[in-house]
Structures are given as C-alpha cells and as structure tokens.
C-alpha cells in the first residue's frame, strides 16, 4: 500500500478542494431531506409519540460519536507507524468534531429521556458509555493542547487514542455488566431491523448526511491547518529576509 502518494500536502489540497463542494452540497441536501422526512413525513411512534423524532438526530450522532473515535484511532496508528504527516492532522482535526457529535448525542438523549422516562439523566449502560466516551475525547483534546511544542502533543495524542480504542470495548462491557435498562438495539440485528420502513428511510438518509457533514468539516479543518502552517513558514521567511537586509533594525524591533 503506497500511502505516501497521499502524503503530499499539495496533492491533498488539490484533491480536497475538488471534493469539498460535493461533500458540502451532499451534506446539506441529505440533512435537509432527512430532516424534512423525519419531522413532517415520518409517522409518530405508537408508544413514543412525537418524541420519536428526536431519534433521527440522536441515533446518527451516537453512531458518528463512535465512528469518529475509530477513525481517529486509525489515523493515529497510521501516524505512529508510517509517520504520515496528514494522518496526524486528520486525527487532530477529527477529535473536536467527534466530541461535538458525542455532546449532541448526550443532549438529544437527555431531551428524549425527559419526555420518555420523565428524567433528564439515567445511569443506564449506554448513556454511561457515551458519557465516558465524551470524557475520552476531552482527555485527548486536553492532552494534545497541553504541550508548548505542537508535534509532541500530536504524538502523545496518537498513543492515547490507541490506548483508548483498546479500552473502549472493555469499558463498554464493564458498564453493560454494571447496569442496563436501555432498550436493546433495534436497527442492526440478526433477522432484519425491527423499525418500520417509514422511519428507517429518514434515519438512513440522516446517517449519510451526518457522515458527509463530518467529511466536509474534517476537510475544512485539515485544509485550515495546512494553510496555517504555510502562512507560518511564509512569515518566518519574510522575517529572515528583513533581518538579512537590515540586521540592526531587526534586532532593535
């Protein structure tokens, strides 16, 4: 596998600038259609009533929360093994987005719980796992930003992301063991999904929309990081040029 074909930042900038409008437009269209279907077309649930519509945001956010962590760990592994410069940037750029999805999942879950269970928070297994995931994201972000030298933070973060991905199943299992009163998973299981097609379609469209939304933001964040690095290099070379032209002035300022 020749990853270094994509390691070239200039090629990445060209590729991403071509992809970006498509991702952005696709995300806007899919989330727009998905929200319309979810809020106006899909029937209210026979048990949950109108509150079921929260699920069309909650479920994609929950999936993205774990998917982004897995992607972050994958990018971190690539960064550690092959010292791939873009993989580092990808992991760093994905982390705040993943934390955002996790927070969205927690907030929508809490709103839904208030309608359905009559309480804002229940210490049940899945809620608790998502809360722990949120703290894993926060720990990663805190660690990455805790060093004066940026490269150091990225490498430490990469190791932490791998430690986290090894621990996530263990945490999940232990929390399940500890307590569970959540409804069992109802979309992916053997024997087909148990939710009706009128609700499955908006959900699937929303999931795709969230993925494209994430891809769009990720590309924007990665491009910004690269552009920032380029600006820093240009500024430094400018300063050096000035210093070479008039050494005394540069020292005085």
């Amino acid at each position: 596998m020749n990853l270094h074909r994509f390691a070239n930042p200039a090629r990445f900038m060209r590729l991403s600038s071509a992809l970006l409008p498509w991702c952005g437009a696709g995300a806007a269209a899919l989330i727009g259609i998905g929200l319309y279907l979810a809020l106006f077309i899909a029937p209210p649930d026979y048990q949950q009533g109108e509150a079921v519509r929260i699920m069309f945001v909650h479920v994609p956010a929950a999936w993205m929360a774990s998917l982004v962590y897995a992607l972050m760990a994958l990018a971190s592994a690539i960064a550690l093994i092959w010292r791939h410069p873009l993989a580092d940037i990808a992991a760093l750029s994905a982390a705040p987005l993943g934390a955002g999805f996790t927070l969205l999942c927690l907030v929508t879950g809490s709103l839904w719980g208030e309608r359905m269970w009559g309480t804002w928070w229940v210490w049940d297994a899945r809620l608790t796992s998502v809360l722990v995931l949120f703290f894993l994201y926060l720990g990663y972000l805190a660690l990455v930003n805790a060093f004066d030298e940026p490269g150091r933070g990225a490498r430490a973060g990469a190791i932490l992301a791998l430690v986290g991905i090894v621990n996530l199943p263990i945490i999940k299992f232990s929390v399940d063991w500890w307590n569970t009163l959540h409804q069992p998973a109802s979309v992916f299981r053997l024997g087909g999904p148990t939710i009706d097609a009128s609700m499955l379609w908006p959900l699937a469209i929303m999931v795709l929309g969230f993925m494209l939304f994430f891809a769009t933001l990720l590309l924007v964040r990665m491009r910004t990081t690269l552009i920032e690095a380029k600006i820093r290099v240009l500024l430094l070379s400018e300063i050096e040029r000035h210093a070479a032209a008039s050494p005394r002035q540069a020292v005085a300022s």
């Binding site: 660690l143 986290g164 621990n167 232990s174």
Partner: peptide, 21 residues
C-alpha cells in the same frame, strides 16, 4: 503527560475513564 502544562488535572482527566472497569 510528562512536560505538559497543568499536568495534575490533565492526568486525572486522562485516567478516570480508563479506571472505570
């Protein structure tokens, strides 16, 4: 967290999720 700013608080944030099991 060696050499990090605010090492102590950072360490608690890193470790608590991993200590839960």
């Amino acid at each position: 967290s060696l050499g990090a700013r605010r090492g102590g608080v950072l360490l608690s944030l890193l470790m608590l999720p991993l200590y839960i099991p």
